[in-house]
Design a protein around this nucleic acid. Structure first.
Length: 504
RNA sequence: GGGCCGUUAGCUCAGCUGGUAGAGCAGGGGACUUUUAAUCCCAAGGUCGCAGGUUCGAUCCCUGCACGGCCCA
């Protein structure tokens, strides 16, 4: 009973694999050797063998390495499929070519093992491009079995908790994260090409701000002070502009202590850019061009399929006035109802949810989310927001109740937020005061005032256009994933159920 | 937060409104020198998410809990 080899299930499978590793060690073979010299990509081997006709092989040997993902045949001949990041190739092994002992060792390999293999590239009589195996080396023994070779890994919980298995089992999933990297790289190229400087500002902040959200709080022992994980880098990036870094951007994680949903993860990736002497209309033009470039890099084109709809990301995007669009969609002119109570009644009369405790800005935001956002499938800029919703945006010169701000939507999601930045320190101080009042009225998401940020503005910040982009949502759009968990490698999960099952 | 659904072998899934569970793949033994989800033979593998309840008897019915998915807020 104590010998796991007598047990069933996973323990037995692990024991069998361990026994093979131990047997190798006894023969003086390290099942986890450090190097494999002279390895080429499988893609290179395939390219080399491409011209070969069936039944012929190349003259020279080469070495490849990868994971054993399939196996066919036994006895005196065997075929093993090996996969690396450039592709898959069949190993064609014959006892009379590699010897009895080597053949026995080859048949001891398990699915999931990492091997190095050497031989000429050859095409079998059936036409399959292969490595005509002359020698191989176990490079890493897999002590646990991989997911099912045909059905892959379906259980969403396991896919997220053990993403390495999901990646291992599903090339398409690997493709999502390659597309993500390509989009981000394209954004960097785009901004670098326009003279933006990439900067890194604090993730651990003494004061948080730049967005409406509850923060994570942590403690620095040596400094003996509480610090907040940033909810946005905005106020630091504007300090950079004050200092003369006229075009800056930061790509990185923000942290918001709120619930998870198909479009919310507590840590998420954002891009923020600030450009001196630009306004929000310049920023809109840059945004549509940049997103199209990212889509091109990630997908090869600017038209993407998302939730069975075609979305054209190439410029120009539709530009709509927020107030007019809201009125058209909901029949409510929020500007005519400047009191929370009146707006709440109007919303309820039209069948929209409106919480008793919601402030006026929260109600407008809620109306936007339910009446307008879901229908904004093609990329759309909503322009000119009420000042109450936008504590860091500059008022329109012709209408001080409205700020120069847009949010960009696509696929029914908000993907970007931008404004002409408020650079009048006195107005900014008044906006902070309004936030304090909102906080006292019960809005826990209203951020606190930041005196040093006000001081920075008092030194003079040029007129500036700023932008924030939700990178995860952008990637969702470009890869047709309907949940943020599909585009974040290791999404936030609850603690696992403690029922004694082995998580790995 | 609410509603619906799910949790059975390492993986993918069956399991007939109650009688102590099956398949394919993977793994083990055997056969096989051109396979492509190789094929054939043999044997093995289970705390049916967890805890209660009802019942002579529960994977199945009921309650609670945990985790997850979808929808709504």
């Amino acid at each position: 009973m104590t010998d796991p080899a007598d047990a069933g299930g996973l323990d037995r499978l692990i024991a069998e694999r361990r026994a093979k590793a131990d047997a190798l060690r006894e023969r003086g073979v390290d099942p986890f050797p450090a190097t494999y010299e002279g390895r080429r990509d499988i893609g290179d081997a395939r390219e080399l063998g491409e011209p070969l006709p069936p039944g012929e092989g190349s003259d020279e040997s080469l070495r490849i390495a990868g994971r054993v993902v399939a196996r066919r045949g036994q006895g005196k001949m065997a075929f093993l499929d090996v996969e690396d990041h450039t592709g898959r190739i069949q190993l064609w092994a014959r006892a009379n070519q590699i010897g009895q002992e080597s053949m026995a060792a080859l048949l001891d390999l398990d699915l999931g093992d990492i091997v190095g293999a050497e031989g000429p590239v050859a095409r079998t009589r059936r036409g399959e491009l292969s490595l005509d195996l002359r020698g191989f080396t176990l490079l890493a023994k897999a002590l646990r079995p991989p997911p099912d070779k045909h059905h892959g890994l379906k259980d969403p919980e396991t896919r997220y908790r053990q993403r390495y298995l999901d990646l291992m089992a599903d090339e398409e999933v690997r493709g999502v994260f390659r597309a993500r990297a390509a989009a981000i790289a394209a954004i960097r190229r785009f901004l670098d090409g326009r003279g933006f400087v990439e900067v890194e500002t604090p993730s651990l902040q003494p004061l948080y701000g730049g967005a409406a959200a509850r923060p994570f709080v942590t403690h620095h022992n040596a400094l003996d002070r509480d610090l907040y994980l940033r909810i946005a880098p905005e106020l630091y990036l504007k300090r950079c502009v004050v200092g003369g870094l006229d075009r800056v951007y930061e790509l990185g994680k923000n942290f918001r202590n709120e619930g998870v949903s198909y479009k919310h993860n507590p840590e998420f990736t954002s891009l923020e850019t600030y450009e001196a002497y630009a306004d929000y209309r310049d920023v809109a033009a840059m945004t549509e061009t940049m997103v199209a470039a990212a889509a091109e890099a990630a997908t090869g084109g600017t038209t993407v399929r998302f939730r069975d709809q075609e979305i054209e990301l190439a410029p120009p995007w539709t530009r709509l006035d927020l107030r007019e669009s809201l009125e058209q969609a909901s029949g409510i002119d929020v500007r005519e109802l400047p009191e929370a109570a009146a707006l709440r009644d109007a919303m309820r009369a039209k069948g929209y949810e409106a919480a008793d405790t919601a402030t006026w800005p929260q109600l407008v935001d809620g109306l936007l989310s339910s009446a307008l956002e879901p229908d904004l499938v093609q990329p759309t800029f909503l322009l000119d927001y009420p000042v109450e919703l936008s504590p860091f945006a500059k008022r329109r010169p012709d209408d001080p109740a409205v700020v120069e701000r847009f949010e960009a939507f696509a696929g029914g999601m908000e993907i970007a937020n931008a404004f002409t930045e408020l650079n009048d320190p006195d107005d900014q101080r008044a906006r902070f005061a309004a936030l304090v009042a909102e906080r006292e009225a019960g809005d826990e998401e209203a951020p606190p005032p930041d005196p040093d940020f006000l001081a920075a503005l008092e030194y003079g910040m040029p007129p500036t256009g700023g932008l924030g982009v939700g990178i995860d949502r952008l990637v969702m759009l470009m890869t047709d994933r309907t949940s943020i968990r599909e585009v974040v490698l290791f999404p936030a999960m609850r603690s696992e159920a403690s029922d004694g099952r082995d998580p790995g």
